[in-house]
Structures are given as C-alpha cells and as structure tokens.
C-alpha cells in the first residue's frame, strides 16, 4: 500500500461531508481511535485486557498443570522455580495454572455483573428521565438511597443471607452497583428528551415504550460503557474481597481472592502462595482503570483531561 492511498483513505475518513452513514460512522470511530491511541497508558490498559481475554480463552493450552488437582506427595508449598513458575500451594497445586484458570472466573464475575447491573440502571434512568414528574421523583429517590449505602458491607450482608457462592456474590455486587448507571442514563435522557427528533417520532405516533427503547437508550450506551469499564476494577476488587472472606467462590475453584485467603495461613513463610494471585488482581484492575480513563477521554471530550 503506497503512502498516497493511505493519505486518501485518511482524507475519506476525516471528510467533512460524508456521503454515507457508514462513512460518517467510520470517520467518527477513526477520530476516537486516534485520540484513544495517543494516550499510551490507555493502550497499556487495552493490552492488559486483551491479554486477560486471551489467557481466559486459551487457559487449557497455557496452563501446564491442573488447576484443582495437585501433587500432594512431592509438590507441597514449593517456592517459585523452573517447574512451577509461581510455586505451589498447600495442596501441591501449581499456582501459575490456577491463576491462568482464575482469569476465567474474573471475567465471569465482571461480565455477569455488567450484564445484570447496567440494564437495570439503563431502564430505571431512561424511564425516570423520559416520564418525569412523580415517576422521576420516586425512581431517583430509590436510586439515591441505594447510592448512599456502603456497597461492600451491603454486598456482605446479602451474601450472608443468600449463602456463599460465586453466583450469589455476583448477584450481591450487581444489586449494589446499578445506581450510578441509572443516574447517567437519566442525565443523558434529559438532554435529548425535548429535542426535535424525539418530537418528530412522537408526532409519528410512536409509543413511549418504543421511544425510550429505540430512540433514547441507544444514545445512553456510550457513556454507560465508559462508566461500566471504570467500575470493572471496583467490581473485581469487591468480588476478590468477598472471595477472601470465604463468601465468594468456594474451593477448589481457582478464584484469585479465595486463593489469597488460602495463602494467608502461610503468609509469613511461604509468601508466594498469596502474592501471585494478588498481583494478578492488581494488574487486571489497573488495566480496566487505564482503559476506562482512556475511553472516557477519547469518547467524551467534555470531561476533558482530569
């Protein structure tokens, strides 16, 4: 590909007068990507998350040992070495393999929480914003009440009642994390609610249900995605905290927080048992934070450089 074709393609992408919807969309995406990729930290964050996805997808290939069955006879609490990169735990299991498989559980938690909490917030926020009046007041009061609660403690109490387990931990985190999404969705709804295109759709006889679903919700998605990405780190930390307290994933699942809890007993002599999974949590949360910051700066120029 010669320099000229690249030049002309860029000109096509950045054109002021796009001739098709596709060209306009690609052009906008290109501008956002340029802003995003200019931010080196954001790229690092993206690489970390891509690495997480790859590790989770190919865990079977990447892990040399089983994550749940260890060699109790020969390999208990071995320090990091050539055979076991991050050492072994008290049941003779390879910690590196457990961390690789643990990536799946981390993704599982994060994705499930996002799938449950974001739509709840989106629904509550758009309905409150579009309906206005009493509906708005009541829905937002409920949102604010939930917003004022201490999240971790409440999630703790929920899991205590529901019983320990990774599904219940997901549910508890989702219940406590939807309110910010509702606020964002409501704010976005209020900005478009009185615009001409909504009036046009109303005149064409669209039902409120259809307007909210087809014409308002899509506009809230991008700010919601940014916020969800920024929240991912918090979700991972809460899930790990629940796992650490024995309320999240149950043994022998290789969940990172639970792995730290089991390494706690040996922390003074065999520190590596707890050190490696904690480092994994730190790196992945950092990745989500960097990616979220980058996305916010690229897609939402208003918030600018904070």
């Amino acid at each position: 590909m010669s320099a000229e074709t690249i030049q002309s393609r860029r000109a096509w992408l950045l054109s002021d007068r796009p001739v098709s919807r596709l060209q306009a969309r690609l052009g906008r995406a290109y501008v956002a990507w340029r802003r995003f990729s200019a931010n080196r930290l954001a790229l690092v964050g993206m690489l970390i998350i891509i690495a997480l996805l790859v590790v989770a997808a190919f865990a079977d290939v990447l892990a040399p040992y089983s994550p749940t069955v260890g060699d109790l006879k020969n390999a208990r609490l071995l320090p990091p070495g050539a055979a076991h990169w991050f050492g072994t735990d008290d049941l003779g299991r390879d910690i590196y393999s457990r961390i690789v498989y643990g990536a799946r559980w981390t993704l599982y938690v994060v994705i499930l929480v996002a799938i449950i909490a974001a739509p709840i917030g989106l629904l509550v926020g758009t309905i409150a914003g579009y309906a206005g009046g009493w509906t708005d007041t009541i829905l937002m009061r409920i949102t604010d009440i939930f917003l004022a609660f201490p999240k971790l403690v409440l999630a703790l109490a929920f899991v205590a009642a529901l019983g320990p387990g990774i599904e219940n931990a997901v549910l508890a985190i989702a219940i406590t994390s939807w309110p910010p999404y509702a606020r964002i969705a409501r704010a976005e709804t209020l900005t478009v609610r009185n615009s001409d295109y909504i009036k046009a759709v109303q005149l064409m006889g669209a039902s409120p249900f259809r307007i909210v679903l087809r014409h308002i919700m899509p506009l809230c998605i991008s700010s919601l995605i940014i916020r969800v990405t920024l929240d991912m780190a918090g979700i991972i930390l809460t899930a790990a905290g629940l796992g650490f307290l024995g309320l999240g994933a149950q043994p022998p699942l290789p969940e990172w927080g639970a792995m730290i809890a089991s390494g706690r007993r040996f922390i003074l002599d065999q520190w590596w048992v707890a050190a490696a999974p904690g480092a994994a949590i730190l790196i992945v949360s950092l990745g989500f934070n960097l990616l979220g910051d980058g996305l916010r700066d690229a897609l939402d120029p208003r918030s600018g450089d904070q």
Partner: peptide, 9 residues
C-alpha cells in the same frame, strides 16, 4: 486498583 487485604498481608 490494589486489593487492600493483599497489600496488608
């Protein structure tokens, strides 16, 4: 991004 209980350990 850091899990506080891990940093404590």
């Amino acid at each position: 991004s850091v899990p506080i209980f891990w940093l404590g350990l």
